[in-house]
Design a protein around this nucleic acid. Structure first.
Lengths: 147, 147
DNA sequence: ACATGATGCGTGCGCGGCGCACGGTAGTCT
DNA sequence: AGACTACCGTGCGCCGCGCACGCATCATGT
């Protein structure tokens, strides 16, 4: 029955969501990268790196948060020199959040560490199966239940 | 390069984790199932349903939380009649968290709704691809980076 | 038997992040 | 020009979390 696939995904996602929010992993992975970069601020930084400079309001929907939350997280990143606020040339009310040079290096480095950490646990997987999983995951993001 | 697979998974997981924590979905899915069952308490209930009666301490590692957090969430579920505390016959210090009849029905119903919601967004997927994704996800849980 | 340390639970406390609402500023439209 | 809308940042109250404490129970050694 096709519906049971949805049930399996629901169960697995439930476990995954809970386990992945344990802050310990970020604690170790961000060693020596400054205090501002943690499991709360990284999604903001990563989103800017992924979709480019945006306003806090636009990022809010992206990271599933209120505008105020994005603003505060961005302020911490700004104070650490990873992010800078830049007035939108098209709309002087808006302020765009832009990665600094330092921020780009930081997000690259942390992404590399995350990738290495994930890859290390996938050594037993056949490469084509791992790629199929990654492809399925990406598709699940774009056209799955969380759009 | 194999490492890029890890990077893709890292990115997709980052997005997924952020989007899935939006409480709106649970708000709609738990309609008419009582106030106690929400995105905070369901992981506890689901874990008990999955691995059977356990102490709060054991569940803590399962849901990635402190023992006190599990205790509080369990108290809400207990007050709603979905869960009951039962003295461990082997160790009278410990109290096991056990699903009530009502709790079993609730977790079944919510799981069914979640599965239906996920399945509905997978209609465009070829069935074998969806099954492969579910299988990969389960494997990713058991032997992935979050063990 | 009994004292002692270890382990279990539940709870009070302080911290911190979140959403909401407000004021201030800048666009927009008539 | 003036009214109306849209956007940002911030103060406020709420709530969940982890930590640490007290109490109860088990395990162990004398």
């Amino acid at each position: 029955m096709q519906n049971e696939v949805g049930g399996e995904i629901a169960d697995a996602l439930g476990v995954l969501l809970r386990r992945a929010t344990r802050a310990q992993l970020y604690k170790t992975l961000t060693a020596g990268m400054g205090e501002a970069l943690d499991e709360l601020t990284y999604p903001v930084l990563s989103a800017v790196a992924r979709i480019g400079p945006r306003s806090a309001a636009d990022l809010a929907s992206e990271v599933g948060l209120d505008r105020s939350g994005v603003t505060r997280r961005a302020s911490r990143l700004e104070q650490a020199g990873l992010l800078r606020r830049e007035p939108d040339p098209l709309d002087r009310r808006a302020t765009l959040l832009v990665l600094t040079e330092h921020g780009e290096r930081a997000v690259d480095e942390l992404r590399r560490r995350l990738a290495a950490h994930i890859t290390a646990s996938l050594t037993a997987w056949p490469p084509d199966e791992a790629q199929a999983f990654a492809r399925g995951l990406r598709r699940f993001i774009t056209e799955g239940p969380f759009t």
